[in-house]
Design a binder for these strands. Sequence first.
DNA 1: GCCGTTTTCGGCCCGACTGTTTTCAGTCG
Length: 573
Amino acid sequence: MPVSNTEIAMLFDRLADLLEMEDANPFRVRAYRNAARSIGDYSSSMADLLAQHKDLSTLPGIGKDLAEKIRTIVETGKLPLLEEVEAHTPAALSELMKIEGLGPKRVKALYQQLHITSAEDLERAARSGKLRELKGFGKKIEEKILLRLEHFSGLEKRIRLLDAEVIVKPLLAWLQQTRGVKEVRVAGSFRRRRETVGDLDILVTASRGSEVMDRFVRYDQVKEVISSGKTRSSVILRTGLHVDLRVVTQASQGAALCYFTGSKAHNIAIRKIAVSKGYKINEYGVFKNDRRIAGKTEQDVYRQVGLAYIEPELRENRGEIEAARKNALPELVRLEDIRGDLHCHTRATDGHNSLEEMATAARARGYEYLAISDHSRHLTVAHGLDRKGLLSEIRQIDRLNEKLDDIVILKAIEVDILEDGTLDLPDSLLGQLDLVVAAVHYKFNLPRRKQTERIIRAMDNPCFNILAHPTGRLINERAAYEVDLEKIMTAAKERGCFLEVNAQPARLDLTDSDCKLAKDTGVKVAISSDAHSIGNLDYMRFGVDQARRGWLEADDILNTRKEDELRKLLQRH
DNA sequence: GCCGTTTTCGGCCCGACTGTTTTCAGTCG
């Protein structure tokens, strides 16, 4: 299997950790970290780019040296410089740096003076009171390290956006009730609508002397207070989620919101622009010679550095700044642009509600159409429909459509793509439907080329319209199957097919960068809830968020179309 | 190690909190 971008990024990140311990030039260290991030985020794999003879040094943060190192990694799986460094600085030290409170300097001291290379070594030394004797350490640090070690697994765990929403809601209500508090907002990756969040950044606008900090650390879900100051506090909740709270005054609100929304890479890029114009940006505003010239709103901050306003979902330093400078930012799709849902289930297979209940719920959301796409027979665990079952559902939908006059129920199916690329029901039957959603539900482990061929062969069938959850991944549960998405997107465009952004919070498949790839390829996508109950229809907003992160506009989305336009697009040529 | 609307050399984002210090280094975001 070719070396993945994630693996390359991990090697560079580890190299950065170890170099930091060796007191390497901090800017060189940063260059490796930037490269790791840039590569990890990139939508095409480095291996593919090299196979196509692309010049990697044109990628942001990648110069001649790093391009060559990437080539070596792809060709040999190894990074010689890292191996050289590991000869005198064990790779395991990079793991220790993940423990909160331990950075390069302290880890280096631990290694050089106490020969500690693992979490186990560290725990032993802390228990026997040896840590406090080191210079720069003390009793408190020793205690904290022991506390952190209890829950340290070495893996950073990010939780799904929906789970974060559930956790943050009561906390916001709790903070909102504090005297002197004007506004409470969640910033960070939560506001950028990333599919997972590692921690929560909450920004409170309050008058001076507000008690909000006291109240924050007294919240009954707080397990541990990490730090607590006048403007900034940090806690860990019982769920294990890390929450940072910052308090600012109204005059700084916009600058603070920018600052704490990030991403870090975006902020750094913005601040560099400010510096080149003779300004300084921090969380309190934009300053010229210590005089604040902007900061009340985010719009002010961007305007001051000569940029159009950038939506939070785009703030990843993936080209949005250049686009803002040229006034060429996309006009991102909004939830209100969505006219219907093209993938949902009923009780006929594994859904929880009846056809009529789903229709009523969709109408209540203002939709013009709803496609009922139950499973096909191969998916036995979901009681997939056979010929008879589907015909019965078609008749029921016809009858229901006669009764409804303000929403149209589209006849659809989520048909299995079989191993050989054929569809699970005969064309004569699929031809009677308004649209066909097709999906891979088994044989996830085919080699990349075979999986790609399987899906493209399925698209050759003129009944095929939309490829559901194109990579099959489940966030934090199951990796995507090996597939060449770029090839699939090109094939879909050529054949008049579409890809789905499945809006289930655990799927969000396509990913944000895949959405961008779809846009660049010119293939349109459907944002679909894949609802298995009436409540699930609201997952649509997560799909819209993901699409926005992928730069998609209303025009890039199939289900922003009116019914007649939608039907035209579903006609294969 | 990267990068260029002053630059191919000399810069590289900025502040808060903690603990161990007696004025600041380390870490974090």
